[in-house]
Structures are given as C-alpha cells and as structure tokens.
C-alpha cells in the first residue's frame, strides 16, 4: 500500500472509531430518521388515497427520506469532528508531519462515507422488514448504495468545508437548521405534482434536495426511471464536486496558516 493510501486508511479508521465511540453520534442518525419515518408513514398514510399518488405503500414512498436525512446528520457529525480537530490543535500537529494535507480530507471523508453506507444498510433493512420491496430489484439496491455513498461524500465535504472555514464546532452545528429547511421544503412528504400551494411547489422544484429524494424514491417505488436517476446523480455529483473543491481550497488556506 502506498504511503498516501496508508495515511488515508488510518485517518478514515480514526474517523469511524471516533464516531462509534460517541454513541449519540451513532444512535441519533439511525434512530431519528426511523422515528420520523414511523410518524409520517402512519400519519400520512391517507395521502395514498389521493388521485395520482404513485404508490399504495406510504412507507415505500417515505423510505427515501431517511437516506438523505441520514447523510445530513453525518455531515454535521463529520464537520463537528473536524472542527474539534482544529480547535484541539490536532490538525496543526498533522500539518507539521510529512503527511499530505489532502490525506486529512480524504481520511475524514472516508470515515463519513463508511458511516453513510452503514446507515443506508440499516434503513434498507428496516424497509425490507416492514414489507418494502424495491421496484428496481437487486441491481437497484446496488445503485441505491452507490447513490448513498455519493450523497454522503458530497454532504461530508460540505461539512468539512464549513469546519475548515470556521474552525468552530458550534458554527458547524448552527448550519444544521438550514439543512432541515431544505429537507422539509421539498417533496419529502408528498409528490411535487400533488403540492397544491403554487409557491410551495415552486420552492420544492427549485430545491435540489427534492431531486435527491426522488432519485432514491424512483428506485424504491417506480423501477428504472432514467430522468429521476439522471437528475439525482447529476445533482449529487455536482454538489460533491463543488463541495470537494471548496473543502480542498479551505484546507490549503488552513494548512498554510
């Protein structure tokens, strides 16, 4: 293994171990989305009786949300951890070693992606247990995992960017409500074409999170929907590229100090 790969692996492992050693950081991203799923799929089941609703199973419809919500949680945890590294001087210590700065970022994101995949496994298992059968089959599940990985990477990089720019765990945490706004003002609870209020439909349409949810949803309830997949993967890839660029730039600025 090259020295670089070795460094990335070590830092990724540290990131995962650190997350696992803070039970709240593991339990909350797993439990809270499942609770919200239970609440909404129970309370909004009646929606399936609306003409034009795409499925008879509201759980299958709503199961797409935890995948995106879990990624948001992971983002915050990753950002907070990196900010703590800055506050405690760990990052400065690393910058005194021959380690390449990018290994720090890659290691941190490697940890985030690993946690993202673990979360996706839990969400999907819960879905299967309550009777959801992905319409796109086994291959679709693979695609779903690929998408979860990409979304974790993109949002993880956003969290890392926030941490590197502000250097403060509290500042990273304070961005959290903004993510929630994006989640709730989306097609999270109802298909966009069934949103009655025009202004809300416009906001949901302009909101990239809608397309991330709809991409997962298409794999779960529709089957192979090229447009939904293209939009979802396209937006997730765009977020990832921009966030990675921003995070690497912020890292260079911070390591140069």
């Amino acid at each position: 293994m090259s020295a670089f790969a070795d460094q990335v692996f070590l830092l990724a492992r540290r990131s995962v171990v650190r997350t696992i050693r803070q039970p709240a950081n593991v339990v909350f991203p797993l439990v809270f989305p499942m609770l919200l799923l239970a609440v909404n799929s129970g309370g909004l089941k009646a929606e399936t009786r609306l003409p034009g609703f795409p499925t008879k199973s509201f759980v299958a419809f709503a199961l797409a949300v935890p995948f995106i919500q879990g990624a948001l949680f992971a983002t915050m945890n990753a950002g907070t951890d990196l900010a703590r590294d800055i506050q405690t001087g760990f990052l400065s210590r690393l910058s005194l070693t021959p380690m390449r700065g990018i290994a720090v970022l890659a290691g941190q994101l490697g940890g985030v992606v690993t946690m993202g995949v673990i979360q996706a496994t839990v969400y999907l298992s819960v879905g299967l247990a309550v009777g959801v059968r992905p319409a796109s089959g086994a291959l679709g599940v693979l695609v779903l995992f690929g998408f979860a990985l990409l979304v974790s990477l993109g949002f993880g990089a956003l969290g890392a960017f926030a941490a590197l720019r502000t250097g403060s765990g509290e500042a990273v945490q304070s961005i959290f409500p903004a993510f929630f706004v994006f989640l709730f003002i989306s097609s999270m609870n109802i298909p966009r074409n069934l949103i009655a209020a025009g202004w809300f439909r416009d906001l949901a349409t302009a909101n990239p999170v809608s397309y991330l949810i709809e991409c997962v949803r298409s794999l779960l309830i529709t089957g192979w929907d090229g447009q939904a997949l293209a939009l979802g993967f396209g937006i997730a890839a765009a977020i990832t590229v921009v966030a990675l660029a921003l995070a690497s730039w912020a890292l260079r600025v911070r390591m140069a100090r």
Binding site: L44, A46, F184, I185, I190, I195, A196, A197, F200
Partner: peptide, 12 residues
C-alpha cells in the same frame, strides 16, 4: 411545511 406543503391532504 405542513400547511403549505400538505394542503392537498384536505382532498383525501
């Protein structure tokens, strides 16, 4: 989010 996004629920 609820009154705006879910107003169609009144048609259930």
């Amino acid at each position: 989010a609820f009154a705006g996004g879910l107003s169609r629920v009144r048609d259930v």
